[in-house]
């Protein structure tokens, strides 16, 4: 598994930067501008439901193997 990861390190490094790029403008992006006023509301709402102490919670989510 570790070997597998290492082999792909080169390929991944260039991929990592991709999500950093801003999304290109698009028809739907324009549409979503109309919904932008609801955006802060949405993030506020999600702030309210996220488990507290993200780091600890995520670290604690450990699964046994599956299919």
């Amino acid at each position: 598994m570790a070997g597998q990861e290492q082999k792909n390190t080169a390929g991944r490094t260039e991929e990592v930067e991709v999500p950093e790029a801003p999304a290109p403008p698009s028809p739907a992006a324009a549409q979503s501008t109309a919904a932008t006023e609801g955006l802060d509301d949405l993030l506020d709402e999600i702030d309210g439901v996220l488990e507290s102490n993200a780091e600890e919670f995520v670290r604690g989510f450990v699964q046994k193997g599956g299919q």
Partner: peptide
Amino acid sequence: QLAAGPAAAARSVEWAAKL
């Protein structure tokens, strides 16, 4: 939608919505 970028597919495609 995807051809226009992930944001355009955010209502329909799960990974794009999450992203």
